[in-house]
């Protein structure tokens, strides 16, 4: 017996999002069944729906920023009970034994299973994501959603939030630290909020003056217009860390030049080629260019708790399932501040 579940997804790379009837598995020993209240829309959803990365499986139910309420638990589940608030991010399983899993970095496990368009490790079925009314996930990949977080706005923390949170601590962000955030979108706006809450002095680095004003409202102390050569020259060697959330191929040299000696630029958005790497720019100031991929489960829980403690929520626009196609179009045009969240009707 499986559970018939209403979902929204695509049947081919060129198909629009439409209602789909899917089956959710019956509870395994360690499973948690979740009635989904909200799911965030990530740009990856669109890339995956269109098979931009060549790894898509159809039919596809996207969505990896999931929050909801536990409805049932398997007999081996110890951390959740029906009625609890729960959250699921980009991963739903891994081998749990490799060095990455042991270290709490499940995102690098060679057997890691994505929340959608992945293959279940036990029955070989294709995983379906959060654009649906319910999901069943192994307890180890379910986070507690603290009461202090508004469930309707929390969903984007599960991808945009953890992706920007994860690199901040390892690179020492805290009081006295100067952080520059490149790109004000779903990731960037979370980067501004999180770095500020950690005590850093935060500068939004953007091409548009309008976004600068928005960034200040989000908590940025300062704004640097990357199109202003004088301002860029004056900001040379100012930052300890540049959080680069730009999602497209670009020249990294102007941003790298803004880092202090021993400073770091961390790439979290551009899964594409990067231009302008120069051995001299690295060696003459002992700089590094790093990358960071989402985060593991312990870190994700830590991030949710941090956001609850500091009352940090993503800025969201809540939509109905019928509006997903329109939301995708608007997201492609950059017309969203800063994340769409689908209200899936599940009672909170």
């Amino acid at each position: 017996m499986t559970q018939p579940t209403r979902a929204y997804g695509v049947t081919a790379p060129d198909a629009p999002v439409a209602p789909l009837a899917i089956e959710r598995r019956n509870l395994r020993e360690d499973d948690v069944a979740i009635r989904i209240t909200h799911c965030g829309i990530c740009h990856s959803d669109l890339h995956m729906a269109r098979n931009d990365w060549g790894m898509s499986l159809y039919p596809m139910v996207p969505g990896h920023e999931i929050v909801g309420i536990v409805t049932a638990v398997g007999p081996g589940v110890t951390r959740f009970a029906p009625g609890d608030r729960a959250a699921v991010g980009c991963l739903v399983d891994s081998d749990r034994t490799c060095n990455h899993c042991q270290a709490g970095h499940e995102q690098f496990c060679p057997e890691m299973v994505f929340t959608y368009s992945g293959i279940d490790r036990h029955d070989g079925s294709v995983t379906y994501g959060g654009y649906s009314e319910a999901v069943t996930v192994s307890e180890a990949f379910v986070c507690r959603l603290p009461q202090a977080l508004d469930i309707a706005r929390a969903a984007p923390l599960l991808c945009a939030g953890i992706t920007t949170y994860s690199p901040l601590k390892p690179f020492g962000v805290g009081p006295g630290h100067k952080v520059g955030v490149v790109g004000l979108g779903g990731l960037g706006h979370m980067g501004v909020k999180l770095a500020r809450a950690m005590g850093a002095e935060v500068t939004m680095i953007t091409t548009s003056p309008e976004k600068g004003a928005d960034a200040r409202e989000l908590g940025a102390h300062d704004v640097l217009l990357s199109t202003d050569p004088n301002a860029m020259a004056a900001a040379a060697e100012r930052f300890d860390l540049i959080l680069n959330t730009s999602p497209v191929r670009h020249d990294i040299a102007p941003y790298l030049g803004l880092t202090k000696p021993l400073g770091t630029m961390v790439i979290v958005g551009a899964i594409s080629e990067l231009d302008g790497l120069h051995g001299g720019a690295l060696a003459m100031r002992n700089r590094i260019v790093a990358g960071s991929l989402i985060g593991g489960l312990p870190e994700t829980q830590e991030m949710l708790d941090f956001c609850a403690e500091h009352s940090i929520h993503p800025e969201v626009e809540i939509i109905q399932p019928a509006d997903i196609n329109t939301a995708w179009d608007r997201m492609e045009r950059g017309d969203v501040r800063y994340r769409f969240v689908i209200d899936l009707g599940g009672q909170a």
Binding site: I271, S272, L277, G280, L282, R287, V289, A290
Partner: peptide, 26 residues
């Protein structure tokens, strides 16, 4: 990198992001 004080060919962001790698200079 300690030797190649020169422009380097493009690198893929995915190469850094996967495994949280980093390239630096000294």
């Amino acid at each position: 990198i300690v030797g190649a004080i020169a422009p380097l060919p493009p690198i893929h962001g995915g190469m850094l992001i996967s495994n949280n790698r980093a390239i630096g200079g000294s």
